[in-house]
Simulated assay, not measured.
Amino acid sequence: MLTQQDLQNKLIAQIPDLHNVIITDTSNGCGQSFDIVVVSNTFQGKNKLQRCRLVNNALKEEVAQIHAFSCKCFTMEEWSKVVA
């Protein structure tokens, strides 16, 4: 079973300039459905599809093991406007 910590550790290792990661297990703890927010300036100049592909590639093995996966990707500037 995958945990939020497993996903976070993999993202920290794979996504450069990672500022923040918010992982929510939406399967009530059974590790089969996750919503992820990734904040990194690596996403600068990339569209939404390119950003999600970076995250999906980083979590390729993990995503294959779960039922549902959603990610939202922001630069630090974009994130500061979301949380303001």
Rank of each mutant, 00 (worst) to 15 (best):
M1K: 13
L2F: 02
Q4D: 07
Q5M: 02
Q5D: 08
L7T: 10
Q8W: 06
K10T: 11
L11C: 14
L11Y: 11
L11N: 15
Q14L: 06
P16K: 12
D17A: 05
L18G: 09
L18T: 07
L18D: 10
H19V: 02
H19Y: 03
N20I: 00
I22H: 14
D25P: 09
D25T: 03
G29S: 12
G31S: 09
G31F: 04
Q32Y: 02
Q32S: 11
S33T: 06
D35Y: 04
D35T: 03
Q44R: 08
L49K: 09
Q50L: 11
Q50W: 08
Q50E: 15
R51D: 01
R53G: 00
L54P: 08
A58G: 06
L59G: 11
L59A: 08
K60L: 02
E62F: 00
E62K: 00
E62T: 01
V63I: 14
V63G: 04
A64K: 14
A64S: 14
Q65E: 14
Q65G: 07
F69T: 07
C71N: 10
K72Q: 09
F74S: 05
F74N: 08
F74V: 02
M76L: 08
E78L: 03
W79N: 11
K81W: 00
V83Y: 03
A84F: 10
A84S: 14
